[in-house]
Design a binder for these strands. Structure first.
Lengths: 211, 211
DNA sequence: GAAAATTACTAAACACTGTTCAGTAAGTTT
DNA sequence: AAACTTACTGAACAGTGTTTAGTAATTTTC
C-alpha cells in the first residue's frame, strides 16, 4: 500500500531521504534501536533498497557521523570573531561541552563509538576530515595563546591533545552517566549541570594559572 | 552428547562457571560478539540455564564490570606505600592509563558503555561501589597534595573530577582509536604510545606548575 | 513404600537483527 | 518488436536476546 502510494510522489535523491529518516530515528531512539528495517519502513521502501545506496549500516551512520562534525565545526566557526586567543580557547571548551550535552547521540557517534569508523579502517586514505579540521582549529588557538604568553614551555600539539582529552573526558563521563553517579554518591552538588560547570570552571582556572 | 558428559562432572557453582566463560569470550571476541548462546555453548548448557542465574545479558556483564573495578582498585592499592601524595597522584595517573591500555575491553565496560549500568538504573540504591571507591582514593590523594601546597585555592572534589576527566579522556580517545587517527594526520609522533606518553607527560608538567 | 512437591534443566518458539540474492516490472535503447 | 538496463522487492539465511511449557530426576511428605 505505502509502497504503491510512494511511487506517485516526485523523486528526490533517495540517498538523502534515507539519511533523513536514519537521522530522525537515530535521534529519537538511539543507534541500537535504529535498524535498517525501521529506516526502510519509515521511507516505505524495502530494506534491500538501502543497500543499493549504502554498503552497510556503518556506512549510513558514518554519514551521520560526518554531519555531526559539520555541526561542531560550524559552531567553532562562530568563534572566529573572538580576537583574544585565550578567550577563544575558553569559548571553544564551552562550545565543545555544550555540543556534547545538547547532542549526546551525535557526540557518541563522533567520539565514543568506533562502529562508524570501521568504514575507514578498510580505506585508510579516506580521512576523518571534519574531525581533523576541528583539531587544527584547536592547535592554532593553542599556538596563538602561547604567542600571548600562555602555556610557556609546552609543546603545542601535546598541549592540544591534553586540552582535548580533558574536555572529551568531561563530556563523555557526563553523557555516559558516570559523572552524575559519582556526584550523587560523593558530593553535595545539586545536579549534573553543577558538576559539569564546576569542572569546566576548575579547568579554566587551571589554564589561567599557566600564564 | 556434551550435555550428557557434563552431568557426570563434579558440580562447582554454576554462576561462577558462567562468568568464567563469559569473561573468556568477552576478552577474546568483545562485547557484541559474546552472545548468550555462545556462553551457553561454551559451558555446554542451554541458553535458558543462564537466565536462571542472571536476569539478562546486562547482568552478566555487570558482574564482569565489577570485576574490572576490583582489578583497578587493587592496582591502586599497590600505590599505598608511595608516601608522597603528589608522587602517588602521578603514579595513579599512570596506573589508570596503563590499565585502560592493557585491558581495553574491561575499560570499555567500566567507563564507556552504559549497557551494564542499566542494571543499576532500576535499583538506584544499588551502588557502583568499586567505582566510588576508586574516586574516593583519588579525592583523598588530591586533598593530601593540597596539604603539601599543591593546587592551592582549588576545591578538592572539583579538582578530582578534572583529573579524572583528563585521564579518562586520554584513555578513551586512545582505546577508541581517535587519538591515533589525529596523531597520524596531524603530528610527527611515531605511534600511539608516543602520543599517550607525551600527553601524560604534559599533564604532569602542568600539575607540577600548580605548586 | 507410594504420592506429591521441588529442583535443575532444556527444546522450541517469538520477535527481532543485518545482509544477500534471485527475480520482476517498468523504462530505454537498438 | 526485441534486447538491455534500471530500480526495486520478497524471501531467505544465519544470527540475536529472551520466555515458556514441559520433563526427568531428586527430595519431601504422608
Amino acid at each position: 500500500m505505502g509502497i504503491e502510494d510512494r511511487k506517485q510522489r516526485h523523486r528526490e535523491d533517495l540517498k538523502e531521504i534515507i539519511l533523513k529518516a536514519a537521522k530522525e530515528l537515530f535521534l529519537e531512539k538511539g543507534y541500537e534501536a535504529t535498524s535498517m528495517r525501521s529506516i526502510a519502513e519509515k521511507i516505505e521502501y524495502s530494506p534491500a533498497t538501502i543497500y543499493l545506496h549504502f554498503k552497510d549500516k556503518n556506512e549510513v551512520f558514518y554519514a551521520l557521523h560526518k554531519e555531526g562534525f559539520r555541526m561542531l565545526v560550524s559552531a567553532f566557526k562562530t568563534l572566529a570573531n573572538v580576537s583574544d586567543p585565550f578567550e577563544r580557547l575558553k569559548a571553544m571548551g564551552h562550545v565543545y561541552v555544550n555540543f556534547a550535552t545538547e547532542n549526546p547521540d551525535f557526540y557518541q557517534l563522533m567520539f565514543v563509538m568506533h562502529e562508524p569508523l570501521e568504514v575507514l579502517e578498510l580505506d585508510l586514505t579516506l580521512g576523518w576530515d571534519e574531525g581533523d579540521d576541528a583539531f587544527r582549529v584547536l592547535l592554532e588557538t593553542v599556538t596563538q595563546c602561547q604567542q600571548n604568553g600562555y602555556f610557556k614551555g609546552f609543546e603545542p600539539s601535546g598541549f592540544s591533545f591534553l586540552v582535548w582529552s580533558t574536555v572529551h573526558g568531561l563530556a563523555s563521563l557526563r553523557t555516559s552517566g558516570h559523572l552524575d553517579h559519582v556526584r550523587q554518591v560523593k558530593t553535595e552538588m545539586a545536579d549534573i549541570n553543577a558538576v559539569t560547570g564546576h569542572t569546566m570552571h576548575t579547568f579554566i582556572a587551571m589554564l589561567e594559572r599557566l600564564r
